[in-house]
Design a protein around this nucleic acid. Sequence first.
DNA 1: TCCGGTAGTGGTATCGTTTCCATGGGATGC
DNA 2: GCATCCCATGGAAACGATACCACTACCGGA
Lengths: 381, 381
Amino acid sequence: MDPSDSLAAMTRRKSTPPTLSEVARRAGVGTTTVSRVINGGHRVSPETLQRVQRAIEALGYVPNQAARILKGYRTRTVGLIIPSIADPFFSECAEAIQAVARANDSLLIVTTTQNDPRAEIDNINVLMEHRADGLIIAPANAQSQTLRQVVSALAVPIVSIDRPIAQSSVPAVVADNFRGAAVATQHLIDHGYKRILCLTGESTLYTIRERILGYRRTMEAAGLEVLLDTSVKDYRSAEYAIESLLSTANPPDAIFTLKNSTTIFAFESLQKFKVAIPGSVALLGYDDFELASTVRPSISVVEQPIEEIARVAAEALFERLLGSADGNTHSMKGGQITLAVRLVPRSSCGCAPRLPEAAAADVSPHAEKRDGLKARTGRRS
Amino acid sequence: MDPSDSLAAMTRRKSTPPTLSEVARRAGVGTTTVSRVINGGHRVSPETLQRVQRAIEALGYVPNQAARILKGYRTRTVGLIIPSIADPFFSECAEAIQAVARANDSLLIVTTTQNDPRAEIDNINVLMEHRADGLIIAPANAQSQTLRQVVSALAVPIVSIDRPIAQSSVPAVVADNFRGAAVATQHLIDHGYKRILCLTGESTLYTIRERILGYRRTMEAAGLEVLLDTSVKDYRSAEYAIESLLSTANPPDAIFTLKNSTTIFAFESLQKFKVAIPGSVALLGYDDFELASTVRPSISVVEQPIEEIARVAAEALFERLLGSADGNTHSMKGGQITLAVRLVPRSSCGCAPRLPEAAAADVSPHAEKRDGLKARTGRRS
DNA sequence: TCCGGTAGTGGTATCGTTTCCATGGGATGC
DNA sequence: GCATCCCATGGAAACGATACCACTACCGGA
C-alpha cells in the first residue's frame, strides 16, 4: 500500500522472492504464525492475521511450492502422458482431465511422447522426479515389455486411457472398440452392402486391432468376405488404394475406415475420382470429427465418448489417491472400464439424416457402467 | 540385479521413495559423491561411479525435484497460460512450445483459463508458487487492468502470444492480423466483389479488432461500404443472419469471416439455404482448418503461422532466461514481433485452385523477421 | 484456591538436495 | 626430499515451509 513498500518489494523480488520468515520478521511474528495464516488462518487472532496479511501483500510473498512439497507427503500434482497434445482426441482428454484435477485442487502436468516408447519412459521419470501423486497414461505401445516393468515398479497409482497395458494390473478406461466396429459393420450389412472394405491405417495400435476384430467377426458371422487394407497412411496411399479399387472386377460397395485421418484421406480420394457417396460406395468412419456433418455428403461415424473416458479415468485416479490415504484401494483394482460408443448415422452410409442427433443409437449395452456415471454431454453440436 | 535387491527396493518404495543419502549409505560413500554422480559423474573415480550407479539402480532411486529446486536458483520449469487446450490453435501452440522447452531441458506446465481473467490471475499465482522460470501467456483480455498490474510486478520474464497486453512492456509475438484482413479484403475486391460483408463473431478480442480494422481500412480505401455484422456466434445466429441477408434488397456478394467457427457456421448456413458459393456469394475465412480444402467448395482462408508464433515466443523467452543469467536482457525488450500471414486462395472466393499450395502468397512484407527464422513447415498436408 | 482446558503463539527439527569448505594422499616440479 | 597442486572424497550448512512440541494467558468449574 505504501509506495515505498511496493518499491522495496519489487526491488527485492528482482533478486530472490521473499520468504515466509521475511514475512514473519516484517509482521513481527513467528514463522509458525505466518504458516498458519497461509493455510487458512485458523487459530490466529484477527489482529495478527491482518498484520501478517499486510506483510504478505507488501512483500508480494508467494509461498514456495518446492519447500512445501519437500515437507509434506502429497504434491497435489498429477501427470498425464499422451502421444501428442495437438491431436484433438488427446487435447480433449487433457482438457477434461485438467478440469477434474482442478476440482481436486491439483496441478496437471502434461507431457507428450510422439508415440516414442523411449520418450514415454523419460516422461515417467520426469514426473516421478516431480513426485507426481499419480499418473494417467495413454501408452504408446500396449505391448511394451519395458513399459510394463517400469509401471509395475512404480510407487504411485496409475490409470491408463484409450489403450490398456497388456498383462499388467494397471486399470484402464477404454472405449468399446470391438463393439463399435461390430455395430458399424452390422449397420452397413443391414443397409445391404456386401463387399465392405476396411481401411485400417496404422494397424499396430490396440484400438485399431480391436476394431479390426469387431469388423472381422461381424463379417464372418454374416458370411461375408473380409476385406482388409492396411496400406492407407496418407493422401497418396489413399488415392492409390481407391484408384486400384475402381479398376477391380468386383469392387467394394462400402468402405469402413478405422480412424479419423484415414476417413478423411478416403473421403478426399473418393471425391477426387468422382465416386458417388453413398451411391457407388458407402463410407463409414471411426471417431467423429468437427466437420463430419458439414462436408457433403455428411459422413457417418462411430463416436467415442472422449470426454467421458478422460473424466472417468481422472476420477478413478483421484478416488485411489484419496482412498489410499485411508488405506482403501478397493475400487477398480486392476480392472478395466469399457465405455459405450455410439453410431452417428449421417448421409455417407446411405442413411437419410432426419434428426441426426436423435437418430444416434447407443451401442454396447453390456458395457460396464460405473456408479454415478453421468451421461456424456456432447461438446460438439 | 540381485532379486532380493529389487524386492527390497519395491517394498521400500511403496512407503517413501529412497533418498540420496540412502543411496550414499548403500554405496558406502558420502552424499556429495552421489550428488556428483547424478549431475554428470565428473570428478568421481570410475569404481566409485559404478558402485553408486549400482546402488541407484538397486534402490530405484529417483532424485527429488522439490529438494533440488529448493536449493538451486532455476527450476527449469516454464508456464504456459492459454484460454483452452482443446482449441486447435492453442494446442498447436502448446505442442510447439513444449518442443522448445524440451530442447532447453525444461518442463512445460500448461494451464487454461477458459478466457476468465480471474482464472488467469490464479494460474499466474500457481505458476509463481511453483517458481516457474518464465511465463508465456495468451491473455484472455488484452485490456485487463489487473493483468497489467500483476504482470508488471512479476519477477520472471514473460512473453505474450497471439495477443499483446495493452500498455505494458511485455513482449508479444503476434500474427499480422491487420494486414491479413487487409489482403483478404483486397483479394475479394480484386475479384470484383463490391458488397463485402464482414462477420466478426466475438468482437472484443484484440485479434478480431485488428482484423476488423484491416477490413475497414481496405474497404474505405476502395470507396466501398463497410458492412459489419457482429451477431454470428453459433449456428442459430448464423442461419438467422444469412436468411435475413437473402431477403435484403441489396445483398452482399461476398462474406469475409474473421474466425474459424464463424466461417464454419456461415458455410453451413449458406449450404442450408442452397446459396451458391462462390456463384451467389463468395466466402473467405480467417484462420485455416484441417478440412477447409476438403469441403466442397474448398474454402479460401488466411493462414496464420501458429507453430511459428509459438516457437518464436518460446525461443525469445529462453533467450531472455539464458541472457538474464549473464545480465544480458537486451533483445526484444518490450518489443513486439509481428509475423506474416498468408492468403490461401481456394474455390470459395472464386479462385480456380490450380496448385493450392504454390498459389499461396505471402503477405505482410514489412513484418519483422528475426535472425535465423526458419520458414514454417506446415503440419497439415 | 487450584486445576484442567484451550486459544494464540513461537522455537526448532526436519524434508532431500546442493555447495562450500576441508582433508588426505599421490603425483609433479624443483 | 620437500613444497605444491590436483583429484577424489566427505562433513555440514543452507534452501523455505511445516509440524511437533512447549509455553503463556486466561477462563470456568469444583
